[in-house]
């Protein structure tokens, strides 16, 4: 599947370990990588920790990529492996984090926690979808992720991605109908 010329140039530079290109690659892809982690990580595992793990692996191994056009697929595999490896661990959070975690933000805690909890509940339902449907459905929610880009990342034909997203939406709709609309009344 073709890749944008600009992205290809940046990928080549990153493979040569150009620091600016590596930074640019990360900024370009970090949102959908986070979405993949979200789709596959167990609940309760800190997304930021996983994201940092993926970033470290990317920096460490980017010069091992043979085909710059396969960058998205390669990044997806790192994210997938990171999320799955974490699933095999009991927990990554330290006791200190759990018990003494305090926030620097002045944002009212209850409002933020409430919105996050509702988002997590919806994601829990989405995570119950079969693997092949869950990931493209969640990726489609990332700003700027087109069918084509999802297809590149998942190494699937665009038509398959479209079908899976539409089926995934129906499955989620049915789950929501069964569980009641969990975000009903949320602002």
């Amino acid at each position: 599947m073709p890749i944008e010329p600009g992205e290809l140039m940046t990928a080549r530079a990153a493979i040569r370990r150009d620091p600016e290109a590596i930074r640019a690659i990360w900024r370009e892809h970090r949102q959908w990588i986070a979405a993949i982690l979200l789709a596959h990580k167990p609940r309760g595992v800190d997304l930021e920790d996983l994201l940092q793990d993926v970033a470290l692996t990317m920096v460490r191994k980017i010069d091992e990529i043979r085909d710059p056009a396969a960058l998205r697929g390669w990044l997806r595999m790192i994210a997938l492996n990171t999320a799955l490896a974490t699933g095999r661990e009991k927990t990554r959070r330290t006791r200190l984090d759990r018990e003494f975690r305090l926030r620097l933000t002045s944002e009212p805690e209850d409002v933020s926690a409430d919105a996050t909890e509702q988002a997590e509940r919806l994601l829990d339902l989405a995570r119950e979808l079969p693997d092949g449907y869950r990931e493209p459905l969640i990726l489609r929610c990332v700003r700027g992720m087109s069918y084509r880009q999802i297809a590149q990342a998942m190494d699937l034909p665009e038509t398959t991605v479209e079908t899976r997203i539409s089926r995934g939406r129906r499955m989620l709709r049915e789950k929501l109908a069964r569980s009641g609309r969990i975000l009903e009344g949320a602002s």
Binding site: R23, A34, A35, L47, E48, Q118, C141
Partner: peptide, 28 residues
């Protein structure tokens, strides 16, 4: 209904992945 589900899922995904905006590649 499908439109509403998509809007809510999009909000949820963006809220939960917002931390990615602050993430940088640890170039050493």
């Amino acid at each position: 209904s499908a439109q509403q589900d998509h809007a809510e899922l999009t909000s949820a995904v963006r809220l939960l992945t917002a931390c990615a905006d602050d993430s940088e590649a640890p170039i050493l």
